[in-house]
Design a protein around this nucleic acid. Structure first.
Lengths: 227, 227
DNA sequence: ACCTGAAATCTGATATATCAAGCTGGAAAT
DNA sequence: ATTTCCAGCTTGATATATCAGATTTCAGGT
């Protein structure tokens, strides 16, 4: 590739384009705190460290700027703009969007989707006892996916996914608490009931409260970890 | 600049970077309907039409992709993904985020900000009678800005601004209706009262309903215009 | 006519070169 | 010693060249 040695954690696997690879890499470095807020990024240096040219890096940085994780001052430089306050706001954004999705889902859900939500809730209840956290995470995701599908809101879904800042490890850490697992299932059951009853206002409120409550849990976790 | 003639509507003014200029240009072309949904974009052709190289264009397209206005299929091409359904979802996104901002504002607003909201409302009432639509638009923006400031949510504010698809002309068109002007002021007064009373739930609901109602108005306008 | 596949071509992805704005350090003036 | 200012350097912005995947075209076979 370039003239320099690639310093990537792993050799740049060509699973996807370089720019997407780099985007994920830098984004994760920012939200996980390895790149601190306020830090300046040098395009050439970073590119050569990654063993790539500046072109795909610039594109990745543009996307991160659009997401509000870095800020570019023309002819000056690129600075990481991410801190605890923004992490909290991203959680609030997720709550706002996810609850709007739940609202739409309550208007448009069909019987098949209701059945699938209920089936997933039964599995979650079972998962509570076997304490299979990995399975619970997967079930949670599938549950939210059914709601997303019911809402028919592709754009909101996409916008929502951009507000995620917690990786698998963080999720695992939070759901390792007995009480959190229990609460999550309870809240999911209430949300499913509201959607099944076609009550948009209730579904929206329950979803918002759920995302904010569990989000706060994540926030204190990572601030405690301090990485 | 490039070897070709610049085909930009106006010669590329260097008010800001080319990529920002091009970004605005292409974004406006998409949301205004000059670039139809599904249409394929050829990077080189578009770049030469604009009289620029592909580098800043690629960056602009990356941002548009992050916003969900175009979709890039690796090694295949870039396609415009925007239609009436997405326009409606962007309006819903704006409602979701703006109402979350109003919620936060109701928690954090101070007396000075309340006073400024009320002063603006008085001006709006006056503007109703003089039918100065331009001034009303400006006042509306300032009113929302006070709420944004009261919320203290910079990230949400930024995210919100990304959901705007209506230009000045569209706003002017909607507020040219007598009834719409009246409704808007009424709703703004209710929202201000809820925030001043520190009632987050009420403020959120009123703001959501306001954005959705006036948003639907915009949507039918542009679909009627069909440009 | 229809299928097959390899060459030609198109085009996005990546790399490299060039341009110009902003920073820095030190020399010169006060 | 302090300030000013210009030269050189740094670095983001832009342009251009190269690479490689995907599509198209068309010759050759059935």
């Amino acid at each position: 590739m370039g003239g320099e040695d690639a310093l990537l954690p792993v050799e740049p696997v060509f699973l996807k384009s370089l720019r997407d690879h780099v985007y994920s890499l830098v984004r994760d470095a920012i939200v996980s705190g390895r790149l601190k807020g306020g830090e300046k990024l040098n395009e050439r240096q970073l590119a050569s460290q990654l063993g790539i040219s500046t072109t795909p890096l610039k594109e990745a940085l543009r996307v991160l700027e659009a997401e509000g994780l870095v800020r570019s001052e023309p002819r000056r430089g690129i600075y990481v703009t991410f801190n605890a306050a923004q992490a909290e706001e991203m959680m609030l954004a997720r709550a706002a969007i996810e609850s709007m999705i739940a609202r739409q889902a309550a208007k448009r859900v069909n019987e098949d989707q209701i059945a699938r939500m209920r089936a997933l809730l039964v599995e979650m209840r079972a998962g509570l006892e076997t304490v299979d956290v990995l399975q619970l995470i997967a079930l949670n995701e599938r549950f939210h996916n059914v709601i997303h599908e019911a809402s028919g809101c592709d754009y909101l879904r996409r916008l929502q996914s951009g507000q995620n800042i917690y990786n698998h490890t963080a999720r695992l850490s939070v759901l390792s608490e007995e009480r959190e697992r229990f609460l999550a299932v309870e809240e999911h059951e209430a949300i499913a009931s509201a959607i099944a009853a076609r009550e948009p206002d209730l579904a929206e409120r329950l979803m918002r409260d759920h995302v904010i409550r569990s989000g706060e849990k994540h926030l204190v976790r990572v601030s405690q970890a301090g990485n």
